[in-house]
Amino acid sequence: MRLILARHGQTAANVAKRLSTLPPGEPLTDLGRAQADALGARLADADVTAVYASTAIRAQQTAAPVAAAHGLDVTVVDGVHELFVGELEDRADEPARELFYEIEQAWEAGDAEARLPGGESAAEVFDRFRPVVERITKGASGTVVLVSHGGAIRIVGGALTGGPTLPGYLPNTGLVVLRPAGDGWELESVDETVPQPGDVAAGGPAE
């Protein structure tokens, strides 16, 4: 079986590069809905057996075309929402983004206990996300799709495969694909870029 962790499509906060992490959050933009449709088409030939989404509206809207392509429903699950940025919530100023990237770099260097002011550490994100992964993949076959959020996916994708946070940036509707390996998981692929409808790409650091 495979586990696909998919980032949601574009929102207005992505366009503004605003740190927006609290669910239910904002809906997709017109481009975001087009991205979701494109993701559904991209995964239409995959052997998808279940589709899950976080409690955020944007994640559920992104998951809907994927589920529809396979005659499935979207199951909403707790615990897989975006990492909370605490005091930086709804900020789009340069100091806020610089602080976010500073903490992100600490995570990439292996310091999972580093945390944003009033927000979460990478370790806390993994601790709430991991039980959901274990539950939705236990006894599963085919491909399980979970639509979540860029920051959380990078943290969890790294931790599940025995390393720190995955480096780089996961674009809107980007995918992290994992396969079982022994008692854990191995990384099959990570999207660095995703073709965008209209050749327009936009995203924010955490949203």
Score class of each variant (00 low, 15 high):
112 A>Q: 12
77 V>S: 09
193 T>E: 15
13 A>S: 08
139 G>T: 10
48 V>S: 10
99 L>C: 04
173 T>I: 14
179 R>M: 12
44 A>M: 03
147 V>L: 11
15 V>R: 15
184 G>Y: 13
106 A>G: 00
79 G>P: 10
111 D>M: 01
170 L>C: 10
2 R>F: 12
92 A>N: 07
179 R>P: 08
101 Y>T: 03
205 P>E: 14
148 S>L: 03
32 G>T: 00
57 I>T: 13
107 W>A: 02
68 A>R: 09
205 P>G: 03
32 G>C: 04
24 P>L: 06
128 R>G: 14
184 G>A: 08
203 G>K: 00
27 P>S: 05
181 A>K: 00
10 Q>C: 09
2 R>M: 12
206 A>C: 11
16 A>T: 01
110 G>L: 09
3 L>W: 07
16 A>V: 00
57 I>W: 13
154 R>N: 11
167 P>L: 04
130 R>T: 01
167 P>Q: 04
136 I>Q: 05
206 A>F: 05
126 F>C: 02
156 V>E: 12
134 E>Y: 08
176 V>G: 14
11 T>K: 04
190 V>F: 05
37 D>R: 14
91 R>S: 06
151 G>F: 01
137 T>N: 15
161 T>L: 14
104 E>C: 08
14 N>M: 03
24 P>K: 05
196 Q>E: 15
102 E>A: 13
134 E>L: 10
197 P>F: 11
107 W>E: 07
199 D>V: 02
43 L>R: 01
173 T>H: 07
60 Q>N: 01
126 F>S: 05
70 H>S: 03
112 A>C: 01
36 A>F: 06
159 A>D: 04
37 D>T: 05
43 L>E: 10
142 G>L: 13
59 A>P: 02
166 L>T: 01
113 E>I: 00
112 A>M: 07
171 P>Y: 15
61 Q>T: 01
93 D>L: 12
56 A>W: 09
201 A>W: 13
7 R>H: 15
150 G>V: 11
21 T>C: 15
159 A>F: 15
158 G>M: 13
109 A>C: 04
52 Y>R: 11
99 L>K: 08
144 V>K: 05
161 T>W: 14
195 P>V: 00
162 G>M: 12
183 D>Q: 09
73 D>G: 00
134 E>A: 15
140 A>Q: 12
96 A>W: 05
176 V>S: 13
71 G>W: 06
195 P>R: 07
119 G>K: 12
3 L>M: 10
149 H>V: 06
182 G>C: 03
81 H>V: 01
42 R>E: 15
87 E>K: 14
186 E>N: 05
200 V>P: 01
194 V>W: 13
92 A>R: 02
139 G>P: 07
95 P>V: 02
114 A>C: 08
65 P>E: 13
43 L>K: 11
60 Q>S: 08
127 D>A: 15
17 K>T: 03
23 P>W: 08
120 E>C: 08
116 L>C: 09
6 A>Y: 10
136 I>T: 06
33 R>F: 08
64 A>H: 02
86 G>T: 06
102 E>G: 05
72 L>A: 10
24 P>V: 06
103 I>P: 00
1 M>N: 00
49 T>V: 09
28 L>A: 03
91 R>I: 06
73 D>N: 02
115 R>K: 14
54 S>L: 07
150 G>A: 12
